[in-house]
Amino acid sequence: MSGPIRLWVAVKHGVDVVLARADRSTGTVAMDRAPRKTSDFDRNAVEEAVRIREKLGGTVTALTVGPPTSKEALRDALALGADEAVLITDPARPDLDGRGVARALAAYARTHPGFDLWFFGEGSTDHFTGTIGPRVAAEIGAPSLSYARRVSVEDGAVLVEREYEHELEKVRAAFPAIITVGQEINQPRVPTFMSTLKASKKEIRSFGPSELGVQPSDWAPLARRDRVFVPEVNRKRQAVSGADPATTARGLVDALRREGVLP
């Protein structure tokens, strides 16, 4: 490693899963018009990069791909402590699919080489495919270390502890490397009034396809999203109440025995 450590973090301005509502008559969610927010795990990714910078120095650059409104996610990252922010945007294609996002990020990395560690959330709150980090890594030929629960930086290398369904692993890779993190890795800080104010004044650099040396067709969609719909919930929603807690409790126990779910 030479010079201060360069940390990148990819963030997504995704659909807000709490505020998104289905149309009552069709049961479908209009994803393109749904309210958006910064994806949850991306906050963990920013937090991890900022903690490394606080310990070792260096810079944290937040990057996002999407329409200009995605700058909100960059403002969040800046308020959490990122130093700089980059928006990759294509007016012709405001919303790219996973392939498009990965190729856009890869194109930025090719034209602006020099990251040491690049953090991603292990999945997004809205789609949660968990593919973007490793996909970018494959595009640019970097190692990808996914599902990190603990990250330590050594001299020019990174040590990652992670958990799989049946195994725990410790793995090491030299810079540059791509890392995805889950929620267990840290508790992201809450931005202060001052950090939010400062973030709102920082410059966000913007790049389009021509500046990144790609043809717009390079990030044409490979998936067609037909519909998003809310499956019906068929629950009884039966309130159990009695004159006092003991009666209520007996009522509930009786109901569960009738259902055959209690011995």
């Binding site: 289905a22 490979l222 998936a223 067609r224 999203r225 037909d226 499956p231």
Partner: peptide, 16 residues
């Protein structure tokens, strides 16, 4: 597949 953190189902066609 599930989308929106499991609140909804999404239907897609993978092309190419």
């Amino acid at each position: 597949r599930e989308v929106l953190s499991g609140n909804a189902l999404g239907e897609e066609v993978l092309l190419g």
